[in-house]
Design a protein around this nucleic acid. Structure first.
Length: 333
DNA sequence: CAGCCGTGGGA
DNA sequence: TTCCCAAGGCT
């Protein structure tokens, strides 16, 4: 099947009481320096026609891009995809949506069930936040994922990126969606560097806004297509520039692909950290049907101080509920 | 704002 | 085997 028709943003109100064409994007203008911004925006390459055309032919057929996924499906996928590869999200997403097809379905269950269903996706606090977001949506938004960027941003687990992504992917609005893929594409194609800065900068936000096509549907398509380009072609390690639709305009290629200079990105150690201990503890609790005795948790890590600290942390985060008598379980709240 | 928060697959 | 990293958010 062609990918073309699969990425049609759901339009809850097709007539769209005019979604306010003046929306500028998720990125707040930091104010000032208007002249400098205008000047820098003039020389920008026009990338979206090429990338959007490439997307028509190369977009992956992902379930959250199907119309039936709806805003809730888009939102669930965005939570799961935070720092997690598509291949690992797919099966969990399918089970999740089958079990909780609407936000209210998830909100009706204890948060611990969300943590359990999250499985081994990692960063289980995301499951807690998704449950919290579903609860807020049920209580404050009548059970429908809000379409306003500001209202999305107010939900737990939704930051600048996810708010823009849901607004754009689910509702077809015009927002700069600045994830790690898009940041890399912009860094190379426009800035001529191999990698973007470690932390998102005001300059990047400015660039992303300037690259956003005026036409709303085209802008929504660009948000998805530029992200897909970064995920499939303009990858971090071995970019396939021979397949890139904008190789002719790429500043980094033009400069001879200079290697990244400057401080290396922080390598996150894992072995021996609290995170690893937390992961082991939670794995035991996820797989348990009944409350788990302390001794079963003690078995996962040799060092008692770190073990206790990790468990305390899980309790503090609301991922684990301590009961009387030194037994633990996933939260029932 | 730098550090923390999981996991498993590929190079 | 070791290293890198994959659609961030929160404090």
């Amino acid at each position: 099947m062609t990918a073309t028709t699969e990425y049609t943003p759901e339009t809850v109100t097709p007539e769209a009481e005019n979604e306010n064409g003046t929306e500028t994007g998720a990125v707040a203008d930091t104010g000032g320096a208007g002249a400098a911004e205008a000047a820098s925006a003039e020389a920008l390459p026009v990338l979206h026609p090429h990338v959007n055309a490439w997307f028509e032919l190369n977009a992956r057929d992902l379930p959250w891009r199907h119309p039936e996924a709806g805003p809730w499906g888009v939102m669930v996928s965005e939570f799961m995809l935070q720092q997690t590869p598509v291949s690992r999200v797919l099966p969990v997403y399918e089970q999740w949506m089958a079990r909780w097809p609407r936000p209210a379905d998830l909100a009706a269950e204890p948060s611990g069930e969300a943590v359990r269903a999250w499985g081994r996706l990692g960063y289980p606090r995301r499951a807690l936040r998704l449950h919290g977001a579903a609860t807020a949506i049920t209580e404050r938004h009548g059970g429908d994922v809000p379409r306003e960027h500001s209202q999305l941003l107010a939900l737990p687990g939704i930051g600048e990126y996810t708010a823009a992504a849901v607004a754009s992917f689910a509702y077809g609005q015009r927002y700069a969606v600045l994830d790690t893929n898009v940041r890399r594409v912009i860094a190379r194609a426009v800035s001529g560097t191999e990698y973007p800065p470690n932390a998102t900068t005001a300059a990047e936000r400015r660039l992303a806004r300037a690259l956003l096509p005026e036409d709303v549907p085209t802008a929504a398509r660009w948000a998805a297509s530029s992200m897909e380009l970064g995920a499939l072609v303009c990858t971090s390690k071995n970019p396939e520039c021979g397949r890139c639709p904008i190789v002719a305009q790429c500043a980094w290629v033009r400069a001879g692909k200079p290697p990244h200079q400057g401080p290396a990105r922080r390598t996150q150690t894992y072995a021996g950290t609290d995170r690893q201990v937390r992961g082991r503890l939670l794995a035991v609790l996820r797989d348990a049907v009944t409350p788990v005795p302390q001794k079963d948790l003690d078995a996962v890590w040799h060092e008692p101080v770190q073990r206790a600290r990790a468990l305390d942390g899980l309790v503090a985060d609301g991922l684990v509920e301590p009961l009387e008598g030194g037994v633990y379980r996933l939260p029932r709240t």
